[in-house]
Simulated scan of single mutants.
Amino acid sequence: MKERQKITRLNGISKWLSNSVSESEDKQYTHRLLKEDKNQRDIILSELILIVQKAHGDARSRLCKLAGNSLAPFGEFSESDPSEGYPERLHIQTLKGFFGEIFAGIIAENFSPFEHDDWEVPAFLFRFHPVVFQHLEFINQTGETAKNQPGRTGDDCLAFRRNIKGEIIGYLACEAKCTAKHDTDMISEAHKKASAANIKSVDIL
């Protein structure tokens, strides 16, 4: 099996985030509490920035590939980079959502969910968020200020486990919520989604 480099692997994460796990009495839920040591933030920040850049680089590359050949029949339109301004021109709420999805991948690849340390996040699903890319094209053409866009439907992040043949033997559906302070309603919403009746993730395909 070809080894995939985990783009969300953080070398200093154990120094930055303390990690404690507890289990409900009925064994139905496991809770992992991560607490930041702010004194270690500077140590991890450059590495975290690189992870975010790589994650968005995947979406940027896909967008450029989708642009393909020019559709202008007489060549009167100058070609431009369709990923220009991605993601920095987008609304802060959109960026917080993206960061939550990336952080879900960081947790999957660094904290051994369900006692497996071989989870892989091959791609971030915000690469499939056409509403955001349409809005980016609009603000690039008009110069208008970005507005908050509806979140992408489905799961926020998918991680996979593979056997020695490279075949998928397990998947992890992640739901991320990013907020500046504790928000009980937002957490309840995430629990409700994680407990939905569908057995398989709607984003498997």
Rank of each mutant, 00 (worst) to 15 (best):
G85Y: 07
N163E: 03
N148P: 11
I49N: 04
K165A: 09
E88A: 09
H116Q: 08
I51F: 14
E47S: 07
S112K: 15
Y86F: 15
A59S: 07
L48T: 02
E76S: 10
A72K: 04
F160P: 03
Q93E: 14
L158G: 05
A146S: 04
V121R: 00
G97Y: 14
Q149W: 07
S61T: 00
Q141S: 11
S46Y: 09
T94V: 06
D118N: 15
G85M: 11
R89W: 12
V131K: 03
N140R: 11
E88M: 09
D58T: 05
K65A: 13
D118C: 10
C157K: 06
N148F: 12
E84G: 12
R162N: 14
E137K: 13
Q141F: 15
E88C: 11
F103K: 06
Q53P: 08
S80K: 09
I139P: 13
Q149M: 10
P113K: 02
S78N: 04
L125F: 07
L71F: 01
E109C: 13
G75A: 15
Q53D: 08
I51P: 04
A104P: 09
L95M: 11
P87S: 15
S80E: 04
E101Y: 14
S61W: 01
D81L: 13
E84Y: 14
Q53K: 09
